[in-house]
Structures are given as structure tokens and as C-alpha cells.
């Protein structure tokens, strides 16, 4: 089966809730275990909030991946915000430029199987995460 993608705009706090709900539906469909679902949704919540707060809004592309090798959910968070000057620092626990506990990026990375971040100052940030069915 090909991947099906759904794109959600993230411009308000309600959108963060919506991203969580959509990810839950996809994760259930993909057959992720309850713990895996919870981890993926929590990571998505962190990243959607990052997109809203630091990226000044953006989009989330949620897709179900179902090929011969694996089954799961992949999400891409895109924003045109200021970008992250020091990615390594931003991934360190305890680092925060906004108002979280500083677990946003680093924490989200620990909750997923795949994590990729593309960012440059002035050019926005794109974070891709995925969690696969075990």
C-alpha cells in the first residue's frame, strides 16, 4: 500500500490537540501497541508545540507507512520560523528557549524510532519522526 498523507496547519493551541488526535487515529490503524502509541503521540505533541511557539506556526504532515518491510506512522513538522542556531545544544536535556521544562526536542527524540532535524537560521525547521510496529 502506498503512503497516505494528511496535512494539518498548526496555528493555535487547538491545532496541537488536533495533531494529537489525528496521530492517535493513525497509530491505532497502523497497529502500534498502546505504549508505542502513547510515546508517538507525546512526541508529536511536543513537536507540534515547538512548531507553534518557536516556529511561529507551520504544518504537520501525518502519514501511514505500510510497505513490505515495516508498518508505522511518520510525521513531518515544518515551519518557516527563525530556525535553530545550535541543534546539538537544542537536543540536550534541559535546554529551552521557550517555556517548557526543556525536554521538548531531546525528549521527543527518545520517544520515537526515527528522528531527523533539518534547520538553518532564518530558514525554518523541519523535524521528521517515525515509530514502527514491533
Amino acid at each position: 500500500m502506498a503512503t497516505t498523507t494528511e496535512t494539518l496547519a498548526i496555528v493555535s493551541g487547538d491545532d496541537v490537540v488536533r495533531v494529537r488526535q489525528k496521530v492517535r487515529v493513525r497509530a491505532t490503524e497502523a497497529g502500534l501497541s498502546l505504549v508505542d502509541q502513547t510515546k508517538l503521540i507525546t512526541a508529536a505533541s511536543e513537536l507540534a508545540r515547538n512548531t507553534l511557539d518557536y516556529g511561529k506556526g507551520g504544518h504537520a504532515d501525518i502519514m501511514t507507512v505500510n510497505d513490505t518491510a515495516r508498518r508505522g506512522v511518520r510525521i513531518v513538522f515544518r515551519d518557516q520560523g527563525p530556525g535553530i542556531p545550535d541543534v546539538a545544544l537544542a537536543l540536550t536535556d534541559g535546554f529551552t528557549s521557550g517555556n517548557g521544562l526543556g525536554h521538548g526536542l531531546g525528549g521527543a527524540r527518545r520517544l520515537v524510532d526515527d528522528f531527523d532535524i533539518q534547520t538553518a537560521v532564518g530558514q525554518g525547521t523541519t523535524v521528521t519522526i517515525a515509530r514502527w510496529r514491533k
Partner: peptide, 13 residues
């Protein structure tokens, strides 16, 4: 819930 506790710990909280 158990799954929430596991996730929070993994998150570092």
C-alpha cells in the same frame, strides 16, 4: 496510566 508513566520517564520527567 502505565503507558503514560513509561512515556513520562522516557521523556525524562
Amino acid at each position: 496510566r502505565p503507558e503514560v508513566a513509561i512515556t513520562l520517564v522516557e521523556l525524562g520527567l
